[in-house]
Write a protein that binds this DNA or RNA. Structure first.
Lengths: 200, 200
DNA sequence: CGCGTGATTGAAACCCTTCAAGTTTAGTGG
DNA sequence: CCACTAAACTTGAAGGGTTTCAATCACGCG
């Protein structure tokens, strides 16, 4: 059931084009930690002191509303970064939770990494901006979907965008991500199935 | 009816702490343009070649769904930056529109500005990252509201966050921003009024 | 096997939309 | 300055989509 591992050092080399000599240097600035399924990585109220790079496993990033319901803002699978950037960057208490959906191996990236890696490696610095821009792109697209598309379309979009996640996370989490109830998603799926079996 | 003007050069000096000598240099890299109310700044399908800094007036950033409805992703009043960062940064056709809600005076910030300003002024560079981080914060918060809060709460949040905008934009645009219909918002407001007049 | 978690289904309730008036407001030209 | 018009806002009734609550089913695991 385990997915391919995504080593952080390799990631820096391949995706961020950071030179080997610099990688050794900056890798001394991060720690690796394992979380078991269900284990909490960050709780609301705490300050988010790291951005989490997922080498293996799956994290989720969610809020808890007053009525006790979870609302998933983001998933983080292998090769993704997760963290409350607001809390991390602005040093404010977080309003979100992060926990492990699957057993996970995570690289903890703290402020010292960001500060020094940016100084040491220009490649890293520009790649970091790329990541931020990409993050903005995703968030923007998500907002647009939420305000413009009904549940069915949002679901289809999710399946197309993250076919792998569909298979790894329970359906009720997908519902939570889409902003609907598990029952709601179940019905959406049923309707889609009926449509596809009689496609006139 | 006009709001306070927000000069871009002053902005760089005060908010971004860019030194005077650098400001003169980078200001040669931008143009200023006026848009009349209703005028289109960016159309879907085009590449977004500038980020727009609003010195005066008000812009809106929105998408158009297949059924012809507008969905406002962001407003941009004095001192705000507007633009499709996806399209700008990744050089892809935009899926969004930008037009002027009020007559607007806008600074066009192109790639040459970002590239050179980052080289010339370290202050600018870090302030630009601050802006991006702040943008992420807003987008994240908006997503959380959209998936977790009903229309009434989203409306109250909007009023608290942007009391000035409430007075400047037509109600149907607020509705569009909140992801509900104008009629829907009208009813939400009515209910709130009734509650407040009889607060038992 | 029995338990717990996740998925499904049904019925009622609720929120919000749609459509179609009607009312108010703002702007424009006579 | 009034009259006209268009746009914005409100209101009502009907309908759709989702939620809620509860019951049932399916599955994996101790």
């Amino acid at each position: 059931m385990d997915q391919t591992e995504c080593n952080f050092a390799e990631y820096l080399s391949q995706k961020a084009s950071v030179e080997e000599k610099h990688i050794k240097q900056v890798m001394t600035l991060v720690d690796t930690q394992n979380f078991s399924k269900g284990e909490v990585v960050l709780s609301a109220g705490e300050r988010c002191r790291h951005i989490f790079y997922v080498e293996k496993g799956l994290l989720r990033f969610y809020s808890l509303s007053e009525d006790g319901k979870e609302h998933i803002v983001q998933f983080g699978a292998e090769g993704w970064f997760v963290g409350d950037r607001s809390s991390f960057y602005f040093d404010e208490p977080s309003a979100y939770y992060i926990d492990a959906v699957e057993n996970a191996q995570v690289v903890l990236i703290g402020h010292d990494f960001f500060d020094q890696a940016g100084t040491i490696s220009e490649e890293y610095r520009s790649y970091n901006e790329f990541l931020l821009q990409n993050h903005v792109r995703h968030l923007q697209n998500r907002i647009n979907l939420l305000i413009s598309a009904p549940a069915e379309k949002r679901y289809l979009d999710f399946v197309k965008m993250y076919p792998d996640l569909m298979l790894r996370v329970p359906q009720w989490m997908v519902a939570s991500y889409l902003g609907i109830t598990p029952e709601g998603l179940s019905r959406v799926r049923k309707q889609l199935a009926e449509k596809n079996f009689r496609p006139d």
